[in-house]
Computed example of a mutant assay.
Amino acid sequence: MANIEHDNEKVWDLAEKIGFCMLTTQSGAELKARPMSAHGERVENAFYFLTDVESHKDEEVEQHPNVCLAFADAKGQKYVSISGVARVLNDREKIHDLWSTPAKAWWDSADDPSIRILKVTPSSAEYWDSPGTLISYIKMAAAAVSSTRPDLGDHNKVEM
Results as ranks from 00 to 15, higher is better:
107 W>E: 00
125 A>T: 07
40 G>L: 15
51 T>Q: 04
113 P>N: 05
51 T>G: 06
60 E>L: 04
103 A>N: 07
59 E>R: 15
109 S>N: 08
68 C>I: 11
33 A>V: 00
49 F>K: 01
66 N>W: 12
101 T>W: 12
97 D>L: 07
76 G>Q: 13
44 E>L: 10
79 Y>S: 03
123 S>K: 15
77 Q>H: 11
75 K>R: 13
38 A>C: 12
85 V>K: 13
123 S>H: 13
54 E>H: 14
86 A>V: 02
45 N>S: 13
72 A>Q: 09
88 V>P: 06
39 H>E: 09
94 K>Q: 11
81 S>I: 13
53 V>R: 15
122 P>L: 07
36 M>Q: 03
39 H>Y: 14
101 T>P: 02
45 N>I: 00
119 K>Y: 02
63 Q>N: 14
96 H>L: 13
43 V>G: 12
86 A>H: 05
90 N>K: 14
41 E>P: 02
98 L>F: 08
72 A>K: 06
35 P>H: 02
64 H>G: 02
114 S>E: 08
40 G>Y: 14
107 W>F: 07
50 L>E: 05
115 I>E: 01
39 H>I: 00
77 Q>M: 12
84 G>V: 02
108 D>C: 04
98 L>S: 07
98 L>D: 06
53 V>F: 09
69 L>P: 04
37 S>K: 09
87 R>T: 08
33 A>R: 05
117 I>N: 01
64 H>T: 12
74 A>E: 11
109 S>Y: 00
117 I>A: 01
45 N>P: 01
37 S>Q: 13
125 A>L: 06
114 S>D: 09
106 W>C: 04
91 D>L: 04
116 R>E: 01
52 D>T: 00
100 S>M: 01
89 L>R: 10
97 D>M: 07
92 R>S: 11
125 A>G: 09
102 P>H: 04
51 T>M: 06
